[in-house]
Each structure stands twice: as structure tokens, then as C-alpha cells.
Simulated assay, not measured.
Amino acid sequence: MATHRFTDIPADALAVIEEHTGPVLKAESVSTGLNSEIAARIHTDSGALFVKGLRLEHPRVWTQQREAAIAPYVAPLTPALQWHTQKSGWDLLGFEDVDGLHADYAPSSLHLALVANAMQTLTAVPLPDLPLKTMPERLRAYVGDDAERFAGDQLLHTDWNLHNVLVVDDRARLVDWAWAARGAGWIDPALWVIWLIASGHTADQAERMTRWHTALADAPTVSLDTFVLAQHRLWDEIAGDTPDTWTATMQTAAATWHQHRHG
């Protein structure tokens, strides 16, 4: 469920931000993303910075803490975290400002190869010693003990929403690591298949787009089929709880892939 987004930074949060940045000359609210109460590009005498934040009592404040913890491990792939603070009732993150385009997943997009390269780079990032949720834990509710088929020791991003991929200087940068997890190496490209279908690819085209990924190509058929079923059930649940155009599109994409593989 989306979190209410402030269009102006509350005064108490602004005071905390300025302790790290100096006086804020201008703040531009960023509309994309679902989890943050504050998401803004701020301008100071020393340059621009992207700031996101939640109140400490917010039920998803753990997403801020997860991003802060994982940032040092994924530095080659993501804008640099410059500071993290918890003060005056706020949890705030200050990131390097990256002036890029949100990735385009359409069939003709030149961004597809860049996203694939970033996903391949992620496979070489060692699994950090952090209390990340495992994919069996996250998906057990949808396929029971068969979720153990998703176990592994790969660091996964898992949220391939096109707003979480910025294209900068012919390179894809990944943002919003709140849902990072531990699991089988084929899961990230498998999740991307659903976003590709939602962006206009057929199920067959989307699968062919991800065959370059060795881990997905080597995934046991029964494991992948079980994962597709879990995603279908997951998006049915999300669309039922939060009915809107976006969730309906993702629900349809997950159902399309399920139908393609299961008939």
C-alpha cells in the first residue's frame, strides 16, 4: 500500500536535513516511489542531494534502515548513500543526486540491455552478512513448503519496478533496496519477466529476453513453474487489497505468464 507523500518537507524534518547539508535553497518533491513520506531533490550551496524519509513510528520505517545497511555492499550499482540519521522523530537518508531517466522496458527500448547488464553485475556482489529475508520466507504463504525451491545465497534486489532503475550515462543504476532478499540466483531475472510482460512484451518474448542470464537458464523447470504460480497468487492478493490501474496491470502480467507456462 502506498504511503502518503508530503509535497513540502515538514519543518522538523527540514531542520534535521539542514544539519547535514546546510541551508536548503529549494526542494523539489519526487512523485515516484511508494514507501516514503519524504522523497525530494534538495538544492544547497554545495549542490543537489536526494533525500527520502519516514517518521520513526511508521510501520515501514524498517525499509529505511534496510537501505542504509545494504548501501555499502551495493555501491557499484546504486547512488551513494552520504548520510543516514534518526532524529526528531524522523528516519532520513541522504543520497547522491543522480540525474537520470527511469528505465523503459518496452520491447523496442535501448534500456533493456543496460538493465540486463546491471542485473548481471549484481550476481557478482557477495551476499552481505545482514538479516535479509529469504525468498522461501517471503513466498511460503502462496505455495507452502514448495517455497524451499527458491532458496539460495544470492543477493537479490527483487523490486524491478521501472521507477527503481535509473539510466545515467548509458548505465542502469538500481535504487530502493528496501526489499533486498536472499535466494536463488535466477529469481531477479524471473521477476523481471513479469515487468517486461506488463510493459508490452509477450510472455515468450519476455522469457527470451532473460535467457542470457545463466542462472535463469539453468533453473529447474519445476522450481520456475512453482515461482510463477507464487507470483500469480501474490499479485492476485495485491490487486485485491489495493485495486488500481497499476496493480491490475501487474496482476494481468503475472496471470499471463502463469497461463503461458501452465496452460
Score class of each variant (00 low, 15 high):
A13Y: 00
A15S: 13
A15G: 05
I17H: 04
E18W: 00
E18V: 09
E19K: 14
E19L: 09
T21I: 09
T21C: 06
G22W: 02
G22M: 04
P23N: 07
L25A: 11
A27R: 06
E28S: 14
E28T: 14
E28L: 12
S29H: 14
V30N: 10
T32D: 11
T32S: 14
T32Y: 06
T32G: 02
T32I: 02
G33T: 04
L34G: 11
N35K: 11
N35S: 15
S36I: 00
E37M: 15
E37Y: 10
I38E: 03
I38P: 06
A39C: 06
A39T: 10
A40W: 04
R41A: 08
D45Q: 14
D45C: 03
D45F: 05
D45K: 13
S46H: 10
G47S: 08
G47R: 08
G47Q: 10
G47H: 07
A48I: 05
V51N: 08
K52W: 05
K52V: 01
L54Y: 02
R55F: 02
L56M: 12
L56N: 10
E57Y: 08
H58V: 00
R60T: 12
W62V: 04
T63P: 02
Q64M: 15
Q64I: 15
Q64Y: 04
Q65W: 07
Q65L: 01
Q65S: 00
E67G: 00
A68N: 09
A68I: 03
A69L: 11
A69R: 11
A69D: 03
I70D: 00
A71I: 03
P72E: 12
P72L: 09
